[in-house]
Design a protein around this nucleic acid. Structure first.
Lengths: 151, 151
DNA sequence: GATGGGGCTTCCCATCATGGGAGGGTCAAG
DNA sequence: CTTGACCCTCCCATGATGGGAAGCCCCATC
């Protein structure tokens, strides 16, 4: 199989196949007399393993470890599980961060009129670091009553 | 103010101050006779604005737009709000992705014994792309590529 | 005046995973 | 023999940030 076929069969671009070889995630592929990389079915299976790992958000470093364990008959499932749970913990952290950002920004956007006037609590908070005080815009409306489910 | 003071006052590293200048996010700073960058209080306020934007996860490109609106007396808050909501939408998407990954990986980890045996549904799913069938624990279990009897 | 330490300058490199493209060789079909 | 698809290597770019080298500047202390 040439690199194009292996790429199509695994769902990983040819570019990445070469890169994975370069960083040692994949073993060096065999070569045709003309220098073309040749891939076996086993290679493709490893590539699919890698792609599924990427689909789960795993870093190539963690995938490298998992491939090693996969090929190790004497592995302990505890090692595999530990790697998975480390990644779960990182995902949790990242999700918490992003969620906090989203909630804060969504609340700010919720209190912004979004009309043709320049007044904007989003800019005010970016400027001052403090929540914008309800200003004298139009008829004294405070920053949106409890109705807004933004949070 | 030299770059170090501006960095300390804004919470952005000196390295980043130079970078923001290079990409045109900050105007070119004035220079002392010796070539040192000089920063004003107004510069520091802009830098703090930028930092707060970064704290909300905004890209430097979006921050650039927001800084422009901030300095534009004729802005419409609608423009600001639109940018904010675009970012909220991206955060939502990213959060959904990460959450899906986390849930899937957590479920896999939950079904892994995590002991000294090699059997591991995490590796099985990475290998086959299908949830591992609950099988007999111990012996006769091949988890190495080559001859996958998955027919 | 000399010296030392810390701050500043520019320039280059690294991250992480991926894509784009140039310039050139190879292969299979017409 | 030509054509077009494929492959090769090498370089560059992304986004935001950090690290570090080599060299200049400033100030305080001796």
């Amino acid at each position: 199989m040439n690199i194009g076929q292996a790429a199509a069969a695994s769902g990983i671009s040819a570019k990445m196949l070469r890169y994975y070889e370069e960083i040692g995630l994949m073993p060096r592929a065999g070569r045709s007399p003309a220098g073309y990389r040749r891939y076996t079915e086993a290679d493709v299976q490893t590539l699919r393993f890698i792609r599924r790992g990427r689909d789960l958000g795993l870093s190539l470093e963690r995938i490298r470890l998992l491939v090693g364990l996969w090929h190790d008959r004497d592995r302990s499932s505890a090692d595999v599980k530990r790697i998975a749970l480390e990644h779960v913990a990182e995902l949790d952290g990242r999700i918490a961060e992003l969620t906090a950002m989203r909630d804060r920004l969504r609340a700010l956007a919720g209190s912004c009129h979004g009309d043709q006037h320049p007044d904007c609590p989003i800019l005010e908070e970016l400027e001052t670091g403090r929540p914008a005080a309800a200003g004298p815009r139009g008829r004294a409306r405070r920053a949106v009553p409890a109705a807004a489910p933004a949070g």
